[in-house]
């Protein structure tokens, strides 16, 4: 809950527009900010532009022939729009990609070590952080030399987060960490995210479809629809918002409306946005 004290946000995204392949407009002016030490949730349905927003920040867009055509992104007060992914990792921004994306022919330990690729602070410090990662994810200790292709989905998600942690980031961009995991594992992963935020002082921008779970850990939230931010506010306010309750949490005070009404209402809302 540091929204009111921080003088300068850690990350500021100003009105960015993203175009894929020079023709497909995906983000139509997205602005958001992440304050030091906070967890910010980026919520929305499939295809709303959550992943694209994260990739615009970490600059992984180019690998998909995407381009930020308008707006600016600043990190710690400096423009980062022109920096490539390796530079950004060195500066302290790292993305945990959707779908875990482990290096399946590398062992768990090797995979984690790739996260330390950009670091220049010596073997001892890296070794120490490897221990730290194994402390956060004790389950991985027994899997050290197993290829990541053969471990479970939950363990892969742990490797992906642990690998990002090995880079000693200031800001972690998490893309759908709950995807395809059993509820119990989702719970475990979210607890770790909160601990990393508190104990390792990693600020977090979290893209999630699991709105309910994300709002429980977040300080602040943005709701993305169709490439635009349609709503933002601190997590509590968002959670109480009637539209959010109806559209994203499937709750309503008024009683069940017919599906047709809901659809109509959403369409109207998109028009207005």
């Amino acid at each position: 809950m540091s929204a009111e004290i921080a003088p300068q946000p850690l990350l500021q995204v100003n009105n960015i527009e993203v175009v894929y392949d020079h023709v497909i407009l995906v983000l139509k002016g997205v602005s958001l900010q992440v304050n030091h030490g906070s967890i910010v949730a980026l919520l929305g349905a499939n295809g709303a532009g959550k992943s694209t927003t994260l990739k615009a920040i970490s600059n992984l867009l180019r690998a998909e022939r995407g381009d930020v055509t308008k707006g600016s992104i600043t990190f710690e007060g400096r423009q980062i729009g022109k920096s490539d992914a390796p530079q950004l990792v060195r500066r302290g921004i790292i993305q945990v990609m959707e779908g875990r994306r482990c290096f399946e022919h590398l062992s768990v330990e090797e995979d984690l070590m790739t996260g330390a690729y950009t670091r220049r602070d010596g073997r001892a410090a890296i070794k120490q952080d490897l221990e730290m990662v194994f402390n956060y994810f004790p389950r991985l200790t027994t899997r050290k030399s197993t290829k990541t292709g053969y471990i479970s989905g939950g363990e892969q998600q742990m490797v992906a987060i642990g690998r990002a942690l090995m880079a000693r980031p200031k800001l972690m961009l998490l893309d759908e960490p709950s995807m395809g995991l059993a509820p119990q594992l989702v719970e475990e992963i979210f607890q770790i995210i909160v601990r990393l935020n508190r104990e390792e002082n990693v600020s977090i921008l979290l893209a999630e479809q699991n709105v309910n779970r994300a709002l429980k850990v977040a300080d602040f939230a943005y709701i993305l629809e169709n490439g635009r931010v349609v709503l933002d506010g601190d997590a509590e306010t968002i959670r109480k918002n009637e539209d959010v309750r109806e559209f994203y949490l499937g709750l309503t005070e008024i009683g069940k409306k017919s599906y047709r009404d809901v659809k109509h209402y959403r369409r109207r809302k998109r028009w207005l946005a």
Partner: peptide, 24 residues
């Protein structure tokens, strides 16, 4: 070696390798 490991990572997944700061 560190670079050797990075090369193997790249051969598994280009994009994920980029995401941890390996320059393709």
């Amino acid at each position: 070696t560190r670079v050797g490991r990075a090369l193997r990572a790249v051969s598994d997944d280009h994009e994920a390798a980029m995401s941890v700061g390996i320059s393709l």
